[in-house]
Design a protein around this nucleic acid. Structure first.
Length: 410
DNA sequence: TCTGGGGTCCTAGGACCC
DNA sequence: TCTGGGGTCCTAGGACCC
C-alpha cells in the first residue's frame, strides 16, 4: 500500500455552515442558493466580506471587499454576521469525521485538514469522506490527493465546489504549471509583484527559473516557492500538537482617537481579552507587543518589550502595553489598535522573581474568578469603572462577546 | 488601496558578551 | 582604546496564510 496525503477543504465554509444551521433551525431559505454573504459585525455596514455564495460571486462580490462596495455591485445581497462559535463547532465535527478515516489528521485552519493514509485507492477513500461529510453535516468539501501536503493543497483548490482532484508529480506540468503564479501557496501580493516584474507569470515559469536568482532577490522565501512550484515539499502531517505561539487582539476604532484617555481604554479593553485568553489556556507570556495604525496613510507602528518575569496578569500586560504605546505614539489620530503577547509558557511552573508582588497568587485567583463570572454571565458582568459611560466595550477583540472562542485553534 | 482580524515565520541591525 | 571575530539575544518590520 502506498502512502497518500489528502487535503480536505470545506467549500465557502462560513456561508455553507451558516446555511446548514439556518435550514436546521426552520429557515426556509438556503443561503447557498441566493445572493448571500457572511461578513461585517453587529453594526452591519462596517466590515468586509468573509465568504459568499455562488450567485453573489457571479454578481461580482469578492472576499475581502468592504460591505458597502459589495452592496453596490449586488444591491440584493443578503448579509449575515459571522457566528464564530458555530464555525468552530462545524470545524470540530468535520475534523472528527476525517479522524474516523485516519489517525494522522492535522487541522490546518478552521476549514481545512490534512490527512495521511496508506491505502490502495485514495480516490475511493476521498469519495467516502466527501459523501460522509455531506450526508451527516450537510455541506460539501473539496479534496486534493497527492504524496505531499503542498500538492494535496494545490489539488483541492482546482475546481470547486464538491470536487475531488489528484495532483501527483506526473500531473504537475499539466495541472499546476499553467496557473497564474499567485495561485501558488505562499505567493502573495508582494511576491507576485516581484515575480511579474521579472517576467515570471505562471507557476511553470517559476518552476523553471533559476533558484539562485530567486534566492538572490527573495532569500529563503525565493527558494521555498521554487520548491513549491516544482511540487517539492517534505513537511510532515502534524497530529494536532502545534503549540500556540502568541495571543493577540486588535480592533479598528469607530472614530479617530487622538486623546490618550481613549487610547488607554482601547488598549485596556484589548488587553482584557488577550489576558482572558491567556489564562484560559493556562499560560504566561514573556513579551508584550502593542501596535497602532494611523487614520489615513498606511503608517503603522509597533513596539514590543520582554518582561523580566512572565505574567498572566491583566494589569501588568496593560501597563506595559500602555507604556510602549506612549513611547511610539506621535499624538496623531489613530484608527486601529493591537495588543499581543508572545513567548508563551504554561503557567503551572513559573519563575518568581524578587520583583514580584507578594500577593501575586491572590491577584491571579482574583483574575481567574472574574474570568469565570464572565464566562457564566457575559463579559459585561464586571467592568472597570473607567469604562462606564465611555462608550467603549470593556472587553474588545474580534471574536465578540462569548467565551470560549478560537483560543487554540491551530 | 488597507477593506478586518487573528495568526506564523523570516530577516536585518544593534547591543552585548567572550 | 580599538584591535578581530563569533555567537546570542532583542526588537522592528515585512510577508504570508486563512
Amino acid at each position: 500500500m502506498k502512502k497518500y496525503i489528502f487535503h480536505i477543504d470545506a467549500n465557502s465554509a462560513y456561508l455553507s455552515w451558516q446555511a446548514v444551521y439556518d435550514l436546521q433551525h426552520g429557515n426556509a431559505i438556503d443561503l447557498r442558493n441566493i445572493s448571500a454573504a457572511i461578513g461585517g459585525d453587529k453594526s452591519k455596514r462596517k466590515g468586509i466580506i468573509l465568504a459568499k455564495s455562488l450567485k453573489a460571486k457571479q454578481a461580482g462580490v469578492k472576499t475581502g471587499q468592504p460591505l458597502f462596495e459589495a452592496l453596490k455591485v449586488c444591491p440584493e445581497l443578503t448579509i449575515v454576521s459571522p457566528n464564530y462559535q458555530l464555525y468552530m463547532k462545524c470545524s470540530d465535527e468535520m475534523t472528527a469525521i476525517i479522524q474516523t478515516f485516519s489517525k494522522k489528521v492535522e487541522r490546518f485552519s478552521v476549514d481545512e485538514c490534512f490527512m495521511e493514509l496508506s491505502c490502495e485507492n485514495p480516490i475511493v477513500i476521498a469519495y467516502q469522506i466527501k459523501e460522509y461529510i455531506h450526508k451527516t453535516l450537510g455541506f460539501t468539501v473539496n479534496i486534493g490527493i497527492s504524496t505531499n501536503k503542498l500538492l494535496a493543497k494545490m489539488g483541492s483548490e482546482l475546481e470547486k465546489p464538491d470536487k475531488i482532484h489528484t495532483m501527483f508529480k506526473e500531473e504537475i506540468m499539466e495541472k499546476m504549471w499553467p496557473l497564474p503564479v499567485n495561485e501558488l501557496f505562499m505567493v502573495g501580493r508582494a511576491t507576485y509583484k516581484k515575480l511579474t516584474k521579472y517576467g515570471i507569470n505562471t507557476i511553470g515559469q517559476l518552476a523553471n527559473s533559476d533558484i539562485d536568482f530567486l534566492n538572490q532577490i527573495m532569500k529563503s522565501h525565493g527558494r521555498l516557492i521554487w520548491h513549491y512550484a516544482n511540487g517539492l515539499d517534505s513537511s510532515p502531517v502534524k497530529k494536532d500538537n502545534r503549540k500556540i505561539k502568541g495571543i493577540g487582539n486588535s480592533t479598528t476604532t469607530p472614530f479617530d482617537v487622538d486623546d490618550i484617555r481613549y487610547a488607554s481604554l482601547f488598549i485596556l479593553s484589548l488587553t482584557e481579552m488577550v489576558a482572558i485568553r491567556l489564562r484560559a489556556n493556562n499560560m504566561m507570556c514573556h513579551v508584550v507587543h502593542v501596535s497602532y495604525h494611523r487614520a489615513s496613510k498606511g503608517g503603522g507602528q509597533g513596539r514590543q518589550r520582554k518582561l523580566i518575569t512572565p505574567t498572566d496578569q491583566t494589569n501588568t500586560i496593560y501597563q506595559t502595553a500602555l507604556e510602549l504605546f506612549k513611547e511610539i505614539w506621535d499624538e496623531g489620530p489613530v484608527r486601529h489598535f493591537g495588543v499581543r503577547v508572545t513567548m508563551l509558557n504554561t503557567a503551572n511552573i513559573y519563575q518568581r522573581s524578587i520583583f514580584d508582588e507578594k500577593n501575586l497568587e491572590k491577584k491571579r485567583r482574583l483574575n481567574q474568578n472574574i474570568d469565570l463570572l464572565r464566562v457564566k454571565y457575559g463579559s459585561q458582568t464586571i467592568k472597570r469603572a473607567s469604562f462606564i459611560a465611555s462608550g467603549i466595550n470593556n472587553v474588545n477583540g474580534g471574536v465578540h462577546d462569548n467565551y470560549p472562542m478560537m483560543t487554540s485553534l491551530l
